[in-house]
């Protein structure tokens, strides 16, 4: 879920909600529908950002009985501390880790690897997977696979990999790149970007060797029901909570 100033921003097509812009109510609906974990990405840039986000985290933790991760603009030990104290289970860092890789070590040492997710956005340039910053807008010369190994060595507990080439296409996840990452690190890898239909999820667990899969708009717009998706995965012998 993308949130801005404490409100969800992407159009969400849920019928039975009083207020689809309320992240707490939306989170509750997803928890009820069988989501195993939620990710909130804060895209606000206002001065009040920290406090608003911390308040939202507190309200979500109060009402939701499944784990959730919070990301977006987190750049310091203090940022992480306030979110965890308000009830976030994990935080995700992205650009700030690329700019200051030592932050991963620092956060893992202080809070434990289990709550530090490193999000990596990447796309292919001339056939080479390169890490991108600022939601995929700013290219770097950093190789995706080198960076994935480095963040794992530095103490990340999980990698959230989004292929910018696949995001929004609804043609399936970047399974070749995912499998390369997943087999080269000893931490869980979450697949993101490209989900369009149920077989895409099967593929990403089988050929992409993903440990978890993330999607947003297909759930927001009810193109896929989470319960139906999980039943389909279960019928394909993929271990999943029903």
């Amino acid at each position: 879920m993308d949130v801005k100033d404490g409100r969800t921003v992407k159009g969400v097509n849920f019928v039975n909600l009083r207020d689809a812009g309320d992240p707490v109510e939306l989170a509750a609906a997803y928890a009820l529908n069988g989501a195993d974990e939620l990710v909130f990405l804060d895209i606000s840039a206002s001065e009040e950002k920290r406090k608003t986000l911390a308040d939202m985290v507190y309200r979500v933790a109060e009402q939701i009985n499944i784990p959730f991760t919070v990301g977006g603009g987190i750049a310091s030990v203090e940022d992480v501390d306030i979110l965890l104290k308000n009830g976030a289970d994990k935080v995700s860092i992205n650009s700030s880790a690329v700019k200051n890789p030592g932050l991963i070590n620092e956060l893992a040492a202080k809070f434990g690897s289990q709550c530090i997710v490193v999000a990596i956005d990447a796309k292919q340039i001339d056939g080479q997977w390169k890490v991108h910053l600022v939601g995929g807008k700013v290219p770097t010369d950093i190789d995706l696979f080198d960076w994935a190994k480095e963040v794992a060595q530095r103490g990340a507990g999980e990698i959230l990999f989004t292929s910018m080439d696949h995001d929004g296409t609804k043609n399936g996840f970047a399974n070749n790149a995912l499998a390369t990452i997943s087999t080269s690190v000893n931490i869980p890898v979450i697949a993101s970007g490209g989900a369009g239909k149920i077989p895409h999820f099967v593929d990403t667990f089988v050929s992409g060797k993903a440990d978890a899969a993330l999607a947003a708009s297909i759930f927001h717009f009810k193109e896929i029901e989470i319960n139906a998706l999980k039943k389909a995965l279960h019928s394909q012998q993929i271990p999943i909570r029903l």
Binding site: I187, P188, P239
Partner: peptide, 13 residues
Amino acid sequence: TSAVKVPQMGWNA
């Protein structure tokens, strides 16, 4: 051991 991903992070039966 390093035969599995560590930490185990997620749902199990």
